[in-house]
């Protein structure tokens, strides 16, 4: 009698233990925040061709693409001048004179410098600014009343990093 009690007790304990141990575990749920990944400047090792540079520049400034015919013509213009830095400067100046460049106003820029600087880095250099870069630009713009978004865009378009991808 006692043996059967013991057996039934053990069976109950085992049943409970097995039931508990075999209970299906819920799958853990991992949630990732959306983070846009950009290359850093060190990963840019290849030089853009003249046509790539001007096509990307036009898109960055006007948010629209150049026609293939225009691209071919500008490529010839660049080839016809020896100092490539100078011709890039002249092309940017011409684009800036076009009137269709999409950029914030001076007031918008100064109202939120952090956003402006981050947006400009991602727009032109396809990366976020480092803390020191953001600090430098913030200080430079704040202390220089002549700085406009156009001048900032010009400097980015003229930078060496903008020539690489």
């Amino acid at each position: 009698m006692q043996v059967s009690k013991i057996i039934s007790s053990v069976a109950i304990v085992l049943f409970i233990a097995l039931s508990a141990s075999c209970k299906k575990k819920e799958d853990p749920l991992f949630i990732l925040n959306n983070v846009e990944l950009y290359p850093n400047s060190a990963a840019k090792t290849r030089v853009k061709s003249d046509e790539q540079w001007v096509a990307i520049l036009h898109t960055n400034l006007f948010q629209s693409a150049l026609s293939s015919n225009e691209l071919f013509q500008i490529g010839e213009c660049i080839a016809s001048i020896g100092d490539k830095e100078l011709v890039r400067e002249v092309i940017i100046s011409n684009f800036m004179n076009d009137g269709g460049v999409i950029m914030p106003t001076d007031e918008e820029m100064r109202a939120d410098l952090t956003t402006f600087i981050t947006d400009t880095y991602t727009r032109f250099l396809v990366r976020y600014p480092s803390v020191s870069e953001e600090t430098w630009y913030t200080n430079y713009i704040e202390t220089n009343p002549y700085i406009t978004p156009e001048l900032v865009y010009f400097s980015f378009a003229l930078s060496n990093e903008y020539l690489y991808y």
Binding site: T45, W136, Y140, S155, N160
Partner: peptide, 24 residues
């Protein structure tokens, strides 16, 4: 002047710059 100053700042922060870009 500010354009060049900002450009030079960007250039100083870009390590991969090499010759061959046609700057005379």
């Amino acid at each position: 002047d500010p354009i060049y100053q900002m450009k030079y700042f960007l250039d100083n922060n870009f390590d991969n710059y090499a010759s061959g870009l046609g700057n005379l």
